[in-house]
């Protein structure tokens, strides 16, 4: 008697999806970028080209660089990756030791805190004295700057480990390795992502700076060259690439994070 009609349209239409936070952010970014481009264009009409080039000139320079200097971008990226990876590993180990060896903790902590107080510029100058090879110089500079971020955040992460979970896993009488494998490492992963995201923009700026001081290849050295040949359009073009690189890396890290931390509930704070 009663029959269902699967083909019949539903009485209530599904509600329209509200504008997501992400979409709103994208729109805002487009608006701001357009505004900046227009501002550049307007300014370039009133001042000489070597002060403010027009967006058209910058675009041309960017195209030129993109094809002629691709290798320099990759050199910079490789240096960045190597240094961030090494810092992550060393910082992780330092943070773990600080979190798990109370006797060593105060010594390591003060070492790290002193390090954070040393200006990047000092490290750059010191690196020039200490190392001959420019690759070693850049690697060293980036590591000493980035390691403390990882070390301190990982240490904070270990301190935030709930006692209840420690007692739970200990009730199974695990080895140290089990505790590491099943409790500490998974607990720390979000902290590693957080640190990487917050450090990557700084690391890009620092690698370029270090290249400017210490190397004949990479984005920093090319910017140095552009400056000394009065090519402000190229300086702008490189700057544009650096900003884009930062955004691309942030998006990439967030994407990896989303997969790695799929267990986390979606939270939204109103």
């Amino acid at each position: 008697m009663t029959s269902t009609h699967p083909s019949m349209p539903r009485a209530i239409a599904p509600p329209r999806a509200p504008m997501t936070e992400r979409r709103r952010e994208t729109i805002a970014t487009v608006v701001v970028v357009t505004g900046l481009v227009i501002l550049m264009e307007v300014l370039s009409r009133f001042v000489p080209d070597y002060v403010m080039p027009s967006p058209g000139t910058v675009l041309k320079a960017a195209r030129e660089i993109f094809f002629s200097d691709t290798s320099h971008v990759f050199i910079t990226l490789a240096r960045l990756t190597a240094a961030v990876a090494a810092s992550m590993l060393l910082g992780l180990m330092l943070g773990l030791v600080m979190g798990m060896k109370p006797k060593l903790r105060p010594y390591l902590r003060s070492l790290v805190v002193i390090d954070t107080g040393i200006p990047a510029l000092s490290w750059m100058l010191i690196a020039v004295f200490w190392f001959r090879d420019p690759e070693v110089r850049i690697f060293f500079i980036l590591c000493v700057i980035i390691i403390p971020f990882y070390a301190l955040n990982i240490y904070d992460g270990i301190r935030a480990l709930p006692k209840e979970l420690i007692d739970m896993i200990e009730s199974f009488r695990p080895s140290r390795w089990h505790v590491m494998r099943y409790l500490i490492i998974p607990h720390i992963v979000p902290y590693v992502f957080l640190t990487t995201k917050s450090v990557i923009g700084y690391a890009i700026r620092m690698v370029v700076f270090a290249e400017l001081v210490a190397s004949a290849a990479g984005i920093g050295s090319r910017m140095n060259l552009a400056q000394s040949t009065f090519r402000i359009d190229q300086v702008f073009a490189w700057t544009f690439f650096l900003v884009a690189l930062n955004i691309v890396l942030q998006v990439a890290i967030s994407a990896i994070e989303k997969v790695a931390l799929k267990w986390r509930p979606e939270v939204s704070v109103r």
């Binding site: 209840e164 979970l165 007692d167 009730s171 998974p186 931390l261 267990w263």
Partner: peptide
């Protein structure tokens, strides 16, 4: 020996 605690203490990941 094994325990089921008063709070569930599941590993969230």
């Amino acid at each position: 020996l094994a325990v089921s605690f008063q709070t569930d203490r599941l590993l969230p990941w």
